[in-house]
Design a protein around this nucleic acid. Structure first.
Lengths: 217, 217, 217, 217
DNA sequence: AATGAATGAGGTTTCATTCAT
DNA sequence: AATGAATGAAACCTCATTCAT
């Protein structure tokens, strides 16, 4: 019991450090973030950080991976909603789209993208690590749903991977433009409008001919 | 003539410094780039850099603005092609789309986006500076073309700004995904496929009903 | 005991740095003294200096204050001799005068004055800090003694503050002139002569009429 | 004529540079004064300064020497008043004393002393240059007057050099103390009181016995 | 295991000084 | 002769990292 508590404590401390690290990296950027500042944020001493994570690069990689895991979990939970779209496909897509946009532009996701992209020169592998856990995973999950919908005759016959890719692009592209890559607040109503517009275009292009969700009926 | 030569010499040196700075910032990132390294790349001494640009932050801002201007010029030249789309709208759009993708993913454009996004915390105004000269300007130019096409009955009646936004998203979104934000080379053939797919989806959603470019004819 | 050693160690290091700093500042002047040089003199690394004293200005201020404290202690010890002047007032004054001159023109005191005066533009508060601990304190101590001597009928009735001021001026003024503000060595014999002359003039002006120390008896 | 004008112009420029240099050195101290700043103050370009004075050290030496000459001239003019002391020696001495104190504590004289003393480590010869033109010259002039006064039976028989030394010390010492080495303004009335007190003490010690200026009459 | 203290290396910036014009 | 532009050297300061405790 003691042992467990102790190692639990150690693990907790490690996680506290990783969480603090991500917070500080997100606030300051990789280069401007000081290890001391991270230690302070985590409530530990600097050498403790080093004993757990060895050096700043390693600390960065692990903090990013941990953050990516959390974001991935949120994203997947959202996409799962598509498993049972119900009768109104348009409504279901709009709901999913809106939720995904909310997740994509929360501070953590944006910081993750910013740091990954900004440090891609120094940490090239990070891009794979992060994208696989976020964009790719999401795109694949969406593609899975689209494949089923296509087979079920609710979307026209198409390449589901490409459809998913375009579906996501129709959502995140306009949001990035409007939010200036996340630097301006976007009102919930506008986000919802973007979602609706993206879904509309998507359905015009991909709805099965004659289906109820076709816009021209 | 003398005068001109002299001031040209000074201006040339300033421009050489800005170009060198952008090259080095693109290669190393803002923080890892040393002013000495930039001076070396420009073939001048370090204090010359300071005498022209005052400090590293200013140097960064001006180098980014200069690079954004160049990229903007290229982009606009491309979009201008849409002024005279000819008979085959699909072909014209695919051509423009392909060209824009080539420009969007050349090293300079990507570095510009990477640096802007990565340093957005430290240089918030840069984002506006850069986006206004690139994304926004392009989106507006495309929207202008779409408005004309819509009036000419070749696209259905629609909000041209939103159509442009989605058109660009359908191109850059998938390209970013495939190129892993520019870290993997994407073959010209694949780029062309992305362009074609984006244009196809765009036309399915936006072509005027019954027009020749409709995919179902 | 352990604790004590540890904190003593830290305090010792801080004091070693301050002492080294004063030495180097005295040797080179404020501007020409490098922090590296000070660190070397103290036998520590440069960042250790910064961790203790934060920056060069602060280092200077604290080094000066510490040196002023030491000089002040020496000075006061000297003046205390006047508490019991004995029968021969002239001899006692000459003794004190001589000792004070020795102290005033030792390297540390002179460097203190030189640095204080030379940097008065950049560090205006230092002048108060230093003068209060040296000149003012000494002048007041001397004035105290003179007040007692006046009450005891050994000096004529007078303003003791002004008498002290003049007494000190009669000593340091000529010494500064002869030593060229401390740049020429002054032989002990000459210093003694200056002390004697100063005391003589002082007593001619301030001895109680008819007292034994009057020069005209 | 042209030549004369030209060389006059050149000389004027040189003097303007020296004057500007002294102004800037006085304001900033030697190390913090930039050659550019001096050039700006003089209204010339930096290389012009170098062409006239060769380097910063030389510039400093010449600017100091020129300032010392000016101060010396003022001082001597004052002391000359003592040539004809008139009947009331005390009044004449007080007048001279007061005037000398005004000169000694004007901004130029103080800056001269501050710079000389502060940079004595880097420019040891300056101290001689300056002191010879100011303190020594004054002391000697005063000693000359005292010798005459002694011969004339108005001062007691004494070593005139020592008397002059002490006379000056009795004036400048208290003034330095009150003005905190020139950092606090001293009211004219207080300066006059210092002069009177110094002269009083001086006369008590040096007046010829039985002379009218003796204080005990 | 965790911490206070110390270090080595490197970065930005400034300044006296010198060419071409 | 006078100037705008350029340079070489060096200073202050910060930070990631490692010992003793």
């Amino acid at each position: 019991m003691r042992e467990t508590t102790v190692s639990r404590g150690r693990i907790d401390k490690r996680e506290a450090i990783l969480a603090a690290a991500f917070t500080v990296f997100a606030r300051q950027g990789y280069a401007r973030a000081g290890v001391q500042e991270i230690a302070d944020e985590a409530g530990v001493a600097k050498p403790t950080v080093y004993s757990h994570l060895h050096d700043k690069e390693n600390l960065f990689r692990h903090a990013m991976a941990a953050a990516a895991d959390e974001v991935a979990a949120e994203n997947l939970a959202i996409v799962d909603r598509l498993r049972d779209p119900g009768d109104d496909l348009r409504a279901a897509l709009e709901d999913v789209a809106f939720r995904m946009l909310r997740v994509c532009c929360d501070e953590r996701s944006r910081a993750l993208r910013r740091l990954t992209f900004g440090q891609v020169g120094q940490f090239p592998e990070l891009l794979d690590t992060v994208q696989e856990r976020t964009s790719c995973q999401i795109a694949e999950a969406v593609a899975d749903r689209f494949a089923r919908l296509s087979l079920a005759g609710r979307l026209r016959s198409c390449d589901p991977a490409r459809a998913a890719e375009q579906f996501l692009a129709l959502l995140t592209g306009p949001l990035d433009a409007r939010s200036r890559l996340g630097t301006r607040k976007v009102a919930a109503a506008e986000t919802r409008a973007i979602a609706a517009a993206g879904v509309d275009t998507f359905l015009r292009a991909y709805a099965a001919p004659g289906a109820a969700e076709s816009p021209d009926t």
